[in-house]
């Protein structure tokens, strides 16, 4: 791994941590505050691509595991990996990977701007929402013995917010691609 790629992953991990420390962002049109940290996971995929994005998310989880309060709300330590919601943290890694992989697959520089944004949205929605919730809900259902239907119902309330985050990630991903392109391109 080139030093530059390592640094990019580390910097993005720092961005994800910082997004967990800033106060939740209020959007004008919905009354619910949005925690920006899971947005950071999708952003890691759309901005850095599969490999570097996954490493960035892994770094955040390693920092949490070694006892630093890097997750939103000052959570950290090994206990976050022993909680009913641990599946969502494992899901972060797969979400960043899937989002990054799909971004690399779907987006190229000679597409029109609107097409790129739509493709980024598809990538972020599939990775950052579908893959994430499959991991989170399966873990919750199996580990707590709650069963899939109840685990799904309990998670339902958070899905609209995450769809919105996928949209923000798509717009931001396209903007970064214009301003400072980093996403690896298929040959």
């Amino acid at each position: 791994m080139a030093t530059r790629d390592l640094v990019l992953s580390a910097l993005f991990a720092a961005i994800i941590v910082a997004l967990g420390l800033v106060p939740p962002i209020m959007l004008g049109f919905i009354p619910v505050p949005i925690t920006a940290q899971s947005l950071g996971v999708m952003l890691a995929g759309v901005v850095l691509g599969a490999k570097r994005g996954t490493i960035a998310v892994l770094l955040v989880l390693v920092l949490a595991a070694i006892g630093l309060p890097v997750l939103s709300g000052g959570r950290g330590g090994l206990a976050v990996f022993m909680a009913p919601t641990t599946g969502y943290l494992i899901g972060w890694v797969l979400a960043a990977f899937t989002t990054g992989y799909l971004s690399q697959l779907l987006i190229s520089h000679n597409q029109a701007g609107f097409v790129q944004t739509v493709n980024f949205f598809v990538a972020a929605l599939f990775g950052g929402v579908i893959v994430l919730y499959v991991c989170g809900i399966s873990y919750l259902a199996l580990v707590t013995g709650l069963g899939f239907s109840k685990a799904f119902m309990g998670s339902l309330a958070f899905i609209p917010g995450d769809v919105l985050k996928a949209l923000i990630a798509a717009l931001a991903g396209r903007a970064v691609m214009v301003g400072y392109p980093l996403l690896p391109q298929r040959a």
Binding site: S9, A10, A13, A14, V17, I55, L59, I66
Partner: peptide, 11 residues
């Protein structure tokens, strides 16, 4: 260790 140090340094 290097990347962990980098993250802590840049937050």
């Amino acid at each position: 260790g290097l990347s962990i140090g980098l993250v802590i340094r840049f937050v």
